Computed example of a mutant assay.
Amino acid sequence: MTSQTLAAVTTGDGVRIAYRFDGDQNKPVLLLSNSIGTDLHMWDGQVPALTEHFRLLRYDARGHGASDVPEGAYSLDRLGRDVVELLDALDLQRVHVLGLSLGGIVAQWLGIHVPERVDRLVLSNTAAHLGPADQWDQPIAELLQAPDMRATAEMFLHNWFPASMLQGDNEIVEGFRRTLLATQRQGVAGSWAAVRDYDLRRTATLIPNPTLVIAGEHDTVTSADHGRQLAATVPGARFTLLPTVHMANIEGQTQFLNTVVAFLTEQS
C-alpha cells in the first residue's frame, strides 16, 4: 500500500482544503466524506480493508481538521463544490463516493448535480432533509457563544456511539473526543447552517447513479426512517439497516465494510 501525506488544494473562494490518498494508485478511487465534528481520520479503522480494493481519497471538509475555517454560514452547494474542485485539481474524472452523515448529504448533492463525476454512491446514516429548519438556530447561537467545544463534544459523542462504548476509556471514543475538542466552533456552526438550509427530498429523485443507503437501527441523528425514505426516493437505491447508532462505520465495522465493498465491487 502506498500512502501520501497530507496535501491541500485551494478552492475558488480561497479556502484551503486538506486531503490525502491511501492505497495503490492503479485501483479505482473511492472518495470518503465525513460527519460534522470529525476529520479524515474518522475512517482510519477502515483504511486497511478498503485499500485492498480502492485507492482512498480522504479530505477535511471546510471548517474541520487541517482545512481552513471560514466564518459565517456554509451552504451545501459550497460544500459540494469543494469536492468538485478537489476532483478537478487532482484530475479525477469519476470516483466512487461514500459519505456518512453530513458527508452523505454532500454525496447526495454530487449525485444530483454532477452525476457524471460519480460511479457508485454509498449514503450512510444520512437523510434528504433534517427539519424543521428553525430547530438549528438556537444550537448554532449557543455554540458560537460557548467558551469552548466541551459541551458540544459530549453531545456529539452521545449521539454517535452506544452507551457501551462511552463507558470507561474507550480508545476509539477518546480519539473522536480529542478531534471534537480541537475543532473550531465556527466550523461546526457553519456546517450546521448548511444542514439547516438544505432540502433534497425532491431533487434526490434525480440521482442516476447506483446507490446504497445504510441506516442505523438505533440512530437518533438520522433515523432508520430517514434512511428508508431516502432509499425510496433515489431511483433503484438499495437499503441496508445495521444494528448501530450513528457511526455505523465504527460500531458495526465488519458488517459495514462487507456491505460497502460488496456493493462497490459488484459487476454491473
Score class of each variant (00 low, 15 high):
residue 60 D to F: 14
residue 92 L to W: 07
residue 3 S to H: 10
residue 112 I to T: 07
residue 21 F to I: 14
residue 224 A to P: 02
residue 42 M to T: 07
residue 172 I to K: 00
residue 32 L to W: 06
residue 116 E to I: 05
residue 253 Q to W: 09
residue 202 R to H: 02
residue 196 R to H: 12
residue 266 E to V: 01
residue 19 Y to I: 04
residue 155 M to P: 00
residue 231 A to Q: 06
residue 100 L to V: 10
residue 218 H to S: 02
residue 15 V to F: 08
residue 3 S to G: 08
residue 44 D to P: 06
residue 130 L to D: 07
residue 4 Q to P: 10
residue 120 R to S: 15
residue 132 P to L: 07
residue 154 E to Q: 09
residue 243 P to K: 06
residue 90 L to Y: 03
residue 88 D to Q: 05
residue 161 F to N: 00
residue 57 L to Y: 11
residue 76 L to F: 11
residue 153 A to M: 01
residue 261 V to G: 07
residue 2 T to H: 09
residue 242 L to F: 15
residue 226 H to S: 09
residue 53 H to V: 13
residue 30 L to V: 09
residue 93 Q to I: 09
residue 103 G to F: 13
residue 50 L to T: 14
residue 106 V to Y: 11
residue 84 V to P: 08
residue 124 S to M: 15
residue 221 V to T: 15
residue 50 L to P: 13
residue 90 L to S: 12
residue 226 H to N: 13
residue 215 A to K: 05
residue 92 L to I: 08
residue 240 T to P: 01
residue 11 T to G: 05
residue 127 A to K: 03
residue 86 L to K: 08
residue 189 A to N: 07
residue 193 A to I: 02
residue 218 H to C: 00
residue 221 V to G: 13
residue 243 P to W: 14
residue 21 F to S: 09
residue 129 H to L: 06
residue 131 G to V: 11
residue 18 A to G: 06
residue 204 A to V: 11
residue 48 P to F: 09
residue 68 D to Q: 08
residue 108 Q to L: 05
residue 9 V to T: 11
residue 45 G to R: 13
residue 46 Q to G: 08
residue 161 F to D: 00
residue 249 N to M: 05
residue 19 Y to M: 03
residue 122 V to S: 10
residue 167 Q to P: 06
residue 33 S to T: 13
residue 155 M to G: 03
residue 80 G to F: 08
residue 66 A to T: 01
residue 211 T to M: 01
residue 95 V to M: 13
residue 169 D to W: 02
residue 97 V to W: 11
residue 246 H to R: 15
residue 240 T to I: 03
residue 261 V to I: 15
residue 26 N to R: 14
